[in-house]
Write a protein that binds this DNA or RNA. Structure first.
Lengths: 112, 112
DNA sequence: CTTGACACCTAACTAAACTATGCGTAGTGT
DNA sequence: ACACTACGCATAGTTTAGTTAGGTGTCAAG
């Protein structure tokens, strides 16, 4: 996946992943790689700050735990996060459809 | 259309529009608005520098003309631009499909 | 006892779109 | 005449957000 394609779409992806069940940061990264079939293999430096942003925005809440000597910060979707996810899904659809229309070519009435 | 959604996808859109026939900058903006059904109503400050970038990258070539007292800079797609467009279409498809898979939810084998 | 997976973090850099503004012509309205 | 809008180009400066690159520490395997 080339560089900065997901600018502006990262939050959507993160919210969507956490929406299917609370996850800690590292697991979010793995899940994203898994679901996208390796298209999204995000560096930690991308994901962790984004999760912090989302928590500060009230879309996620987090809690610490310790599993086999390793501390984890587990995130879950809040209500606000859930509705934000809905809106972002919506605008992703609009966006991708708009791109599709542009790529489809000339907008003439054409052969009906 | 919300803010910075098209980060990283603008070049694709511009190349696609110019690919259907040479256009000057202002016309590119209109065409984009038209084809996207108002989803993309880009400010000039976004489009002009991008066109310059694309020309510098060798994807577009430009020529000046004057039509009814107004000077126009008309862009046309180069060969390199054409193949770049192909690649960018490709990676857009991969990207949007990957997003789709992530949004679709849990990747379990599930009900077959 | 080093390497790699797991698990977290952040400062500094960078790319790229946006804001704001400028210039100038032509047409329309008052 | 004067103003306003559409047309048409341009660019400096700001902002946003992801990347780079480093740091800390645990645990299992070779």
């Amino acid at each position: 996946m080339r560089g900065q394609a997901l600018k502006g779409h990262l939050d959507l992806l993160l919210l969507a992943v956490v929406a299917d069940g609370p996850k800690h940061g590292y697991a979010v990264i793995e899940e994203l790689r898994l679901r996208s079939e390796d298209a999204f293999d995000l560096p930690e430096g991308t994901v962790y700050p984004a999760l912090h942003r989302l928590e500060k925005a009230g879309y996620l809440s987090s809690s610490w735990s310790e599993v086999q000597g390793r501390r984890r910060r587990t995130y879950r979707l809040t209500k606000r996060g859930s509705s934000a996810l809905g809106e972002q899904r919506q605008s992703w659809n609009e966006f991708s459809q708009a791109v599709g229309r542009v790529l489809k070519g000339v907008p003439w009435p054409s052969t009906p």
